[in-house]
Each structure stands twice: as C-alpha cells, then as structure tokens.
Design a protein around this nucleic acid. Structure first.
Lengths: 233, 233
DNA sequence: CGATCCGTTGACGGTACTCAACTACCGTGG
DNA sequence: CCACGGTAGTTGAGTACCGTCAACGGATCG
C-alpha cells in the first residue's frame, strides 16, 4: 500500500506541473494571446521577493526555480519544461527566483487581468487551484526526498522523474541542467552527484554519455529510489 | 536583501496556513455549520492515497501531516494548529496522512459541496487558492531547510517558526509534538534533535523545561537559523 | 512494582562534505 | 595552428557532521 503511494508520488514528482499543458487547456489557450519572450541561457529573469505581477508558461527550453540563503547556499525547488506554468499562486510576491537553464521561450501573462477573466471563464480559477495543488504535492514529495532519502535514492528518484517527463529519443534523457543545479535540487554537492551517478552507471542501472542518460534497468533504479533492497514489505 | 527574504520566509514557515482563521473568514464561517469531531491523541484519521472527500479545520489541538516510505521512513510535512485548514487543494487523493498529536477537535467539510458553494460565494475559490499558495510557500521553505541547512540551523528555524505561531504565555512555547515528530519534520533523528536542543540551551539561546521552550536570545537564534555567524554579507 | 515509552547521553562509524588536483571542453587570441 | 584561460565535471584523500547502536533515567500506567 505505501509502495503504491511511493510510485504515485514519483510519478507526480516534479515541483512543477506535470503535463500542465494537457490539463490546463483553457489556460494555455489564454496564454497564447500574450507576449512571447526569448531569453538566453543562464539569465535570472525573476527574483524572489519581487512583487508578483505576471505568471509564465514555458514554451521551449528549461527553467529552474530556486531560493537563496543569505550566505549563498541555494536550493533549487524545481525544473520547468515546455508546457509548465509557474508564478501562479496568489501570493503578492514571488517566493522563488527563476533562471533559464537553456535558451528559453516564455509567454507571460499579467495577473492583474486574472480577476476579470475569472468573471468571464468560470472554470479558470479551479484550473489554477488544481495546478497549485499539483505543485504542492510535488513540493511535499521533495520534502520526503530531502528529509529521508540517501544520495543514491535521491539520484535514482530524480532520474526516474526526469524520465517520466521526457519520454522520447528512445529512452535518452537530456540533462540540460548542470551538476550544480542537480546538486542544489537534491540537497547534495556536485561531487556527490557526480560520484553517485557514476555508481549507478557502474552498476548498470543507467548509461551516462555526456549530458545524456538512458535508464537501462528501470526496475533496479526503482528499487533504489524506494530504498527497498530485496526485502518484502 | 536575501536576508530580508530569509526572514520573511521563516515568518511564513509553517507548511500550514499561518493564521488561516483570520484570513479565511468566509471559509471559517462556512465550516462552523458543519460537524465537529473530537479525536484522541495519536490517531491517524486520514491516510495518504485515500480519496479526498473532505477538508478539515483544526478547532483545538495539534495535528501533524506526514508521508511514509515503504520501509517505514517518515517525513512530517507540517504541524497544524487551531485555525489551520487542510485537505484543500483539488487533488482527488490526499497526498499525506494526518495524525492527531494532542486530543483534537476538528470540523470537516464535504468537498462535494464546494462547487455549489463556489457558485454562491464568488470569493471562496480565490480564498482557497490563497491558502494553497501559502502552503506551497511553506513547503518550499521546508525544501530550503532540508536541503541546505545544518541540524542547528533547522532547530533554530523550527523554534522561531513555532514562536511566530504561539505568541502567548509570556514567550513560552509548548512543544506538543514528540522528539520523533520533530526529527521527522526536520529530517534528523531524535538523538540529534535532543542534542541540538541542548546545545541551544547550553549556549543560552533558549530555555528548555520539559515540553516547554522559551526563546531567550532571539537575535542569536535568528543568526543561527540563517547560518550567519558574525560575518557581514 | 515491573513494563513501556520517551527523552537523554555516550561511543562509534558511515555517508556525504571539503579541499584539492586533474581532465575535458570550450572559445579566444596569439 | 596551438597556446591560453575559464568553466564544468571527475576523481581522490581526509574530515566532520550526523546517524546508529546501546545504555540509562524519568514518567506514566496497569
């Protein structure tokens, strides 16, 4: 029973709105009417604490959301892929910063106009509620990961979650983000990320080739991700 | 600048809806019309994965929300106090379990009736959106805490966040939850929690007396919580 | 009074961090 | 063309923080 829950958790695991595009059709159509911006890689285009005037959808590329401690320590709270929406949530300030990982194409939507739209399209608000709820679920999964999983388990979970988002290219996953980004996402250091990935590679669970990964033994990886060796529950 | 952000973060730090009662007045009034249940301490009254039929508000007592790994490892995602609302969020299954920490008095509200209510009270849905957003913010703060803070910093943050919720009794904070609960909340072990609290006590930051804590040196505790010793940023 | 649970304290060990060196891969410019 | 510098990733050695295991004290309860 908890096993099923764990699997479901991983499936929804991105702090991000898994397949938001499909689910938020009305919203997406809405966004299409608005300005599209191209941003080069490595630009912080949204700062924690700024007043939240817009929300965004990723058209192309990868974005990361993160928070900083005053001494520079960083936590990446999520990666965003095409179709994901962020900056929703009715706080008046953004509670994370956002930076482009790759060159990115974004559409942004002024929040100020939301109230008007709520009035016109009644389903919209509950769509947003659903999206934020999904983000919340993902964040809580991440809490489980950071609070109670080992480095190996974190890496395995991460790869499986990535695979769920990018199921194309014959199983090859593109690691668009740097090791530092992954480390800050998994609560580890770059060195540990590197080592752990190479252990997974060595054990035959994955194939590592530069920025690409392929999951070779999903079963073994899943077991790792759940911390279950060969024992039954 | 990041310092201000960090402080704001701690202020909102409970994965919980800080002072939801005040903010969600319409909602609270609504809930008052519904059944109230008393539950003894230590009962799991809501299971992760169950279909989410109701949402709840805490009238009295303390509740914890948690998730389990299949091998029994646990992460407490939040503590709930009187006035807090949970089980909102429009997922069809609960994504955490809930257990009473103390004897608790709850009101519960059938979700099925929400749609009808949305129609009648237009502000309601955006109230919910705001509550879920706040939960999300809290969860992301917890991600920062779990991913990038030391045991001492986590404990200090925890105490400060608790103090923000319970500002009564002349500064005495009631630790209704066990060390195990705190450990699962902070991603530590009970032993470490115990040790760290006693270090804080020894350094004069706090006063520990059984289940009660008083913050003696809020400044020092805040510095600890932020990881800033005496260096400027 | 024994049993159990919770919290504390101690000794020890391991996982992951720190520090450091080294490689590979860029793009730039001599 | 290759030297050069900068960045990203890998690898190694040593360390530290925190987890594990174990024992103990105090409270509650039957």
């Amino acid at each position: 029973m908890p096993r099923a829950a764990a699997i479901a958790a991983r499936r929804a695991a991105f702090p991000v709105i898994a397949h938001a595009k499909a689910k938020a059709d009305g919203l997406s159509r809405l966004l299409l009417a608005y300005t599209s911006r191209s941003i080069e890689a490595g630009k912080t285009f949204l700062h924690e604490g700024e007043s939240a005037t817009h929300f965004f959808t990723v058209m192309e590329g990868t974005v990361k959301l993160f928070k900083l401690l005053c001494d520079g320590r960083r936590a990446v709270t999520g990666f965003l892929f095409p179709g994901d929406i962020f900056g929703i949530g009715s706080e008046d300030k953004y509670n994370y910063s956002a930076e482009t990982v790759t060159p990115v194409n974004l559409r942004r939507f002024p929040r100020r106009q939301l109230d008007r739209l709520y009035f016109n399209s009644p389903g919209l608000e509950s769509q947003l509620l659903k999206l934020v709820s999904r983000e919340l679920t993902a964040a809580q999964d991440q809490i489980m990961l950071l609070g109670r999983m080992t480095a190996h388990e974190r890496a395995a979970s991460f790869l499986l979650a990535l695979a769920c988002r990018q199921s194309r290219d014959g199983g090859w996953i593109e690691l668009a983000m740097s090791r530092t980004d992954i480390a800050d996402y998994l609560g580890l250091t770059t060195e540990t990320v590197s080592r752990v990935l190479n252990v997974l590679k060595g054990s035959g669970c994955i194939v590592l080739a530069g920025n690409k990964v392929r999951i070779a033994d999903a079963g073994a990886l899943t077991q790792l991700a759940e911390g279950t060796g060969s024992d039954d529950d």
